[in-house]
């Protein structure tokens, strides 16, 4: 399967969706990211791996400017999306986040019904004009997140009443309902059991057809299973960034080798 994906990837001409150049992030005086250069390809799953505290989540949150909401966080360098600087003054982070969706580590459904959870994004962005369209968007998103069958009879029940795995799929449905171009996932399976994890991985693979997905994960197997590109973060720097099969079979950096073989990290 990986070989097939490699071939597929090589055959397709791919543009850079996001280009990060010399990105530094400071929390107060503490430098969390020390000059990262990464290109995120369109319609590709990119995995960020690395030991805890290495800055992969922080870097992920730079891509949709979620770090703006944290006091004392400062970012330098350049992040281009489709060639435009997302930190330019003319860019409204609110509009950026509508294009760059995010799924969090812990499922965080809103205290609303399942329907309203999914309809939240389309409603605030005015993506639909009438109830019928909204119904359709909700159904489509829930279907794509592979939770429609479980949720269709209880759309008016609170999203918080679902199980952990269902909640996370609901959060993915919520994120894709806004029709983003990039989907950021911050350890989306860390709170889930293997069955729910498998469902979500399948889903990520499916989502690749529509947008680029960036996933932070602690599970090496997961990175190998779902991603085409992998970046290994260590102490705020990217040690190695390459095609996933290469990272996992023939890494160039000895630190990457140590980390993926479990000798270190």
């Amino acid at each position: 399967m990986t070989n097939m994906r490699m071939a597929e990837q090589a055959a397709r001409h791919q543009d850079n969706k996001i280009e990060a150049r010399d990105v530094h992030v400071y929390y107060g005086a503490n430098e969390a990211i020390k000059g990262v250069d990464v290109d995120i390809l369109d319609k590709t799953v990119t995995a960020f791996i690395g030991p805890s505290g290495c800055g992969k989540s922080t870097f992920l949150r730079c891509l949709n400017r979620m770090n703006d909401t944290i006091d004392g966080c400062r970012i330098t360098g350049q992040i281009l999306m489709d060639g435009d600087d997302i930190y330019a003054r003319s860019v409204d982070p609110v509009q950026l986040r509508a294009k760059v969706g995010m799924v969090f580590q812990k499922p965080n459904p809103f205290p609303k019904s399942i329907y309203d959870n999914v309809a939240y994004g389309p409603r605030i962005h005015g993506l639909v004009s009438n109830k019928a369209d909204l119904d359709e968007v909700v159904e489509k998103s829930l279907r794509r997140a592979a939770i429609w069958d479980e949720a269709k009879d209880r759309l008016n029940e609170p999203g918080t009443g679902l199980s952990g795995g269902q909640q996370q799929r609901l959060c993915i449905a919520r994120a894709i309902a806004t029709a983003p171009e990039v989907l950021l996932m911050d350890e989306p399976c860390s709170a889930l059991d293997p069955i729910a994890t498998a469902q979500i991985e399948e889903l990520i693979d499916e989502l690749r057809s529509s947008f680029s997905v960036v996933i932070v994960t602690h599970s090496m197997q997961q990175a190998a299973r779902v991603s085409q590109k992998t970046a290994f973060f260590h102490l705020g720097e990217v040690m190695e960034y390459d095609d996933t099969p290469k990272i996992f079979t023939n890494p160039e950096n000895p630190k990457t080798q140590d980390y993926i073989t479990g000798r270190y990290g």
Binding site: M66, V94, L96, R97, F104, F110, G121, I124
Partner: peptide, 15 residues
Amino acid sequence: VPQSLRDGSYGLGAT
């Protein structure tokens, strides 16, 4: 109210 709910909303592009 947990910060994760706020993050979830900001992450969807809500003001």
